[in-house]
């Protein structure tokens, strides 16, 4: 397999290369809603992420499992500096997500379940302007974009087509290309393979492994896919209703819950089935922010 032609990492303000890639201490987030009760307004609070402490070492891949609404996306958005925490701290290579957000942004990129793009623009146009946001000059991106998409098995002749003409799987590959183009030191993956066909899923998974092995990237993978978590991650965490209830190697999780498979361990830890959670969310009116 040819090496992934990602950009040379930016001059990254990694303060100490021996320090953890991600370190969260009592990191928490809640959302407040004002609702009318009779003639008064009342503020209700929902905990999206209970005080959470964990660390991810440099070059490690950690998977976080959890149902919809368990706090996975909140965790990713906190680490992406898109949310401000209500308490605790999180650092990315020593840079605080709250006080040193710009340094964090230089180190982090993200692929989420929704491949969000300007749909009328072509894949090339979307990638080209996004690369500039990371300081990559057009002369460089013109070379790198075709290389990266080729490695992703994306047909080069479709690079100039509007995104809205591409399939969901192809759009997700471009989303991955957008992240890889900026050579992130920490890659946050929020259900990156949801909705992909089996072949595309395997290709994306192979790329994640490449990023780790060849580019020393640290990966935080939030997923519903237990097999994917077991395949890619050195450690697996379980986030349940905003609480990180476990974080250890898949084998350790199975042992702890006396389970033969990771799926059984997950159900034993969360005390339910995925379908039950889906029903609960439907009753509550959807996912929290």
């Amino acid at each position: 397999m040819s090496p992934l032609p990602v950009a040379a990492p930016m001059t990254v303000p990694v303060q100490d290369r021996a320090m953890p890639a991600i370190q969260a201490i009592d990191l928490r987030k809640e959302f407040r809603r004002r609702e009318r009760v009779g003639r008064r307004f009342e503020t209700t609070r929902s905990v999206a992420l209970a005080p959470t402490t964990f660390r991810v070492e440099r070059g490690e891949c950690v998977a976080i499992l959890g149902q919809n609404g368990s706090g996975k996306s909140t965790l990713v958005r906190l680490l992406s500096t898109l949310l401000l925490p209500d308490g605790g701290t999180a650092r990315v290579f020593g840079h605080d997500i709250r006080t040193d957000a710009r340094a964090v942004r230089r180190l982090v990129n993200r692929v989420s379940v929704e491949a969000s793009f300007f749909k009328k623009l072509s894949a090339f146009e979307n990638l080209s302007y996004a690369a500039r946001f990371y300081g990559i000059r057009p002369a460089d991106s013109r070379v790198r974009i075709p290389e990266i998409v080729e490695r992703l098995s994306f047909p080069a002749d479709r690079l100039r087509e509007p995104m809205e003409h591409l399939s969901r799987g192809m759009q997700q590959k471009i989303a991955l290309a957008r992240a890889l183009l900026t050579a992130p030191v920490v890659l946050l993956l929020d259900e990156p393979t949801t909705g992909l066909d089996p072949r595309s899923k395997l290709e994306v998974q192979a790329l994640v492994t490449d990023m780790q092995e060849q580019h020393d990237a640290t990966v935080l993978l939030c997923t519903h896919d237990l097999a994917e978590a077991e395949e890619l991650a050195r450690r697996v965490g379980i986030l349940h209703r905003g609480e990180l209830i476990a974080l250890e190697a898949a084998a350790g999780l199975k042992l702890r819950y006396g389970a033969a498979t990771l799926e059984e361990a997950f159900f034993a830890a969360t005390g339910g089935r995925l379908e039950d959670e889906a029903d609960r969310e439907a009753d509550e009116g959807g996912e929290s922010p």
Binding site: R102, R105, R110, E114, S116, F133
Partner: peptide, 14 residues
């Protein structure tokens, strides 16, 4: 509306 807002606001662009 396009959904790109998160990617733009998490880019290291002042």
């Amino acid at each position: 509306w396009e959904g790109t807002i998160e990617y733009t606001f998490m880019a290291p662009l002042a």
